[in-house]
Design a protein around this nucleic acid. Sequence first.
DNA 1: TACAGTAGTATACGAACGTTTACTTGTCAA
DNA 2: TTGACAAGTAAACGTTCGTATACTACTGTA
Lengths: 208, 208
Amino acid sequence: MSDTKEKILLTALRLFAQDGYEAVSVSAIAGILGMTKGALYRHYKNKREIFDRIVDRMVQIDIECAKKHEVPEVTFDQSLSAYHGATMDKIKSFTTSQFQFWTENEFGCDFRKMVTLEQYRNPEIADLYQKVFANGPVSYMEDLFREMMAQGVLKNSNPRLLALDFYAPFHLLISMSDAPSDGEKAIDLLTAHINSFIQKNAPNRQSQ
Amino acid sequence: MSDTKEKILLTALRLFAQDGYEAVSVSAIAGILGMTKGALYRHYKNKREIFDRIVDRMVQIDIECAKKHEVPEVTFDQSLSAYHGATMDKIKSFTTSQFQFWTENEFGCDFRKMVTLEQYRNPEIADLYQKVFANGPVSYMEDLFREMMAQGVLKNSNPRLLALDFYAPFHLLISMSDAPSDGEKAIDLLTAHINSFIQKNAPNRQSQ
DNA sequence: TACAGTAGTATACGAACGTTTACTTGTCAA
DNA sequence: TTGACAAGTAAACGTTCGTATACTACTGTA
């Protein structure tokens, strides 16, 4: 059936991520797939629709991902320091899997680049960029950390500043992963950062 | 004399920063300046040359900036904690002035955006992006911190990790500053981050 | 077997692209 | 006063753009 439609979407995304929407021609997309641009219009009504379907796809992936990582409440009693460890482990595994998605998964990586390239000419994409890669994660972590502080599973400090300290290296290491040879693996630096963060911000032990 | 040539350069940069090089037409640049595109070719031999001259200009600004901020050696004896404070104050003022350049100065801000948009299709620009905004600053801070640790004016730890912790919020806050309304000012968060960083990483006092 | 629908090609459309050319000014020194 | 030069316009060049149309081949079903 519509295997072609999917190939068009992925090929277009790959090109949009490298050159930007405007710099990619419909002929180029079709050419890579060994067809003429006329055929492409059987599957999408115009070039813009391909872009929109890509964004739709990402939104759908994001919703599924959020559903999967919905924080299931820890119901049984634990000591604070164990709770800190458990929560932080969850944050750590979620963070590293997100990092791999944005740097190693083809769709994630290309989508991120495409959004990066379109953010300054398209206000909707600018919002999306902030929501997914900048303001959004910081505010999310800020709320999370504030709650953890209130519950005493995180050392008290400025939650927004702490969120910035936690998330910013994630953001920077993604950018650095776009360079061809990085020497040290970005993912190793990320886990080192998270481990150091966890250790530094554990609450003063009052049990165990 | 060549006031027009300068206006062309700045106008082109503004458009390149918003839409990307390919999406900007020569006619658009000329149109904004109230001239026809034919006139533009009196000043630049083609579109690409405008781009190259912009990069040249940035390189020149960078060289001048580096010359101005050449670290003049502190010659007179100081206690370690005072030395830490003095060095960190220098880093702090340099960092905030750099931040303002990339976010508030028109040339700096537009150039940053332009490089961001061109990094995935132009290997030279990719190198430039890494050198100026990612790998470069981290490696620079790493060397600086390593030296400071050796001199005992900074608490011992992993210098690369520390460089990441210091620089990443700078990098992220620049991205966040591109969003129209930020609520809290990015520059205030940056100085809060730096202050917190200085306080956390001061060496254990052994004098004063 | 006839036919409707799908997915493709080939081609054409007008517009816009980067670039070049021929021509018109204004300015200033010989 | 003349003439070279600098800086501009208007128009055209060949190409490519996104999109539309007419037509063809294949496929499954009535």
